[in-house]
């Protein structure tokens, strides 16, 4: 799998959970690394992590599991907090325990793309896991054969506090939305890292100010141009280029998480409202 090289995003997102850091027992999951190919309407076809997780190569399988954990840990954590009404500490343990058991027992290897979407399958596994809490606790004690993940639970908890979901929220929809959020966060982090590496600080600053700081203080193109000493046409050109690159990173991350081209197209439509 092309994720063998440590991706910039995993460096960016390697925020440690203090409790786990003290124990010195963690590894950081890495999303599949972005490719260096030029941007195009379609991301290059690659083996998805879902294929790798069912493959024979143990190393590739481990990396694929890490990638899946990186993409899904936050939706899983929030889902456990909401669906199972667990306290933060419990939800953290269950999230860690779930991925540990999933890797150990080969949950993801048994996924059949013909029968369900991976997201649905994962949620079903998670529900089964949490409902058998005793087994989860045992797995936690054993460590599931895998050291705990380095996950920024504090930020996930902060998000839940900042924008709590409605009481009657549809949990399936919520899980999907959180997964989309995690996907975009990954794409933005990759874009940021790529821009930093290639010295494109001004285009990213335009993108950050206009597209990431959305709110009542979002400047107009003209205001942003004055702020950064750029003509308006340059502002829109930078924005256009950054958005295009964001889409490429997003589609690459998405492609890696889909089991087939059909699923990829379907998910791209759900996420972006258009085909890849």
């Amino acid at each position: 799998m092309p994720g063998a090289v440590q991706s910039p995003v995993s460096l960016v997102t390697r925020v440690t959970c203090v409790r786990r850091q003290a124990a010195g027992l963690y590894w950081a999951p890495a999303m599949p690394a972005p490719s260096a190919e030029p941007a195009g309407p379609f991301p290059p076809t690659r083996h998805s992590v879902l294929e790798a997780v069912r493959g024979g190569d143990a190393d590739a399988r481990r990396r694929a599991c890490e990638a899946l954990a990186a993409a899904y840990w936050k939706p899983v954590y929030k889902y456990v907090r909401l669906r199972w009404r667990r306290e933060p500490a419990d939800a953290e343990d269950l999230t860690q325990g779930f991925f540990a058991v999933a890797f150990e027992k080969g949950f993801f290897e048994r996924f059949d793309p013909e029968r369900a979407r991976f997201r649905t399958y994962l949620r079903t596994c998670l529900d089964g896991f949490v409902s058998k809490e005793r087994a989860a606790a045992r797995a936690q004690k054993r460590g599931g054969g895998v050291v705990p993940l380095s996950l920024d639970f504090e930020s996930a908890e902060g998000e839940l506090t900042l924008s709590p979901p409605a009481a009657d929220v549809d949990l399936e929809e919520y899980f999907h939305r959180e997964w989309v959020r995690a996907l975009f966060e990954t794409a933005v982090a990759r874009l940021r890292a790529r821009c930093a590496a290639s010295g494109r600080l001004v285009p990213f600053a335009v993108f950050e100010r206009y597209d990431l700081d959305r709110g009542p203080d979002t400047p107009t193109y003209a205001q942003l141009g004055r702020e950064l000493d750029l003509p308006v046409t340059q502002v829109t050109n930078h924005l256009s280029a950054m958005r295009r690159e964001l889409r490429r990173h997003l589609l690459e991350a998405l492609r890696a998480l889909c089991a087939s081209d059909d699923e990829f197209r379907h998910e791209a439509r759900l996420v972006l409202g258009r085909d890849p």
């Binding site: 966060e185 597209d211 924005l239 256009s240």
Partner: peptide
């Protein structure tokens, strides 16, 4: 980084925009 609901919706909309950087500029 954490994306707010408003930012997420905005990003979904703009990331899905067509690449019309020739004659037309998408608003």
């Amino acid at each position: 980084m954490t994306l707010s609901d408003v930012t997420l919706e905005h990003l979904r909309a703009v990331a899905g925009e067509p690449d019309a950087d020739g004659r037309y500029e998408i608003v």
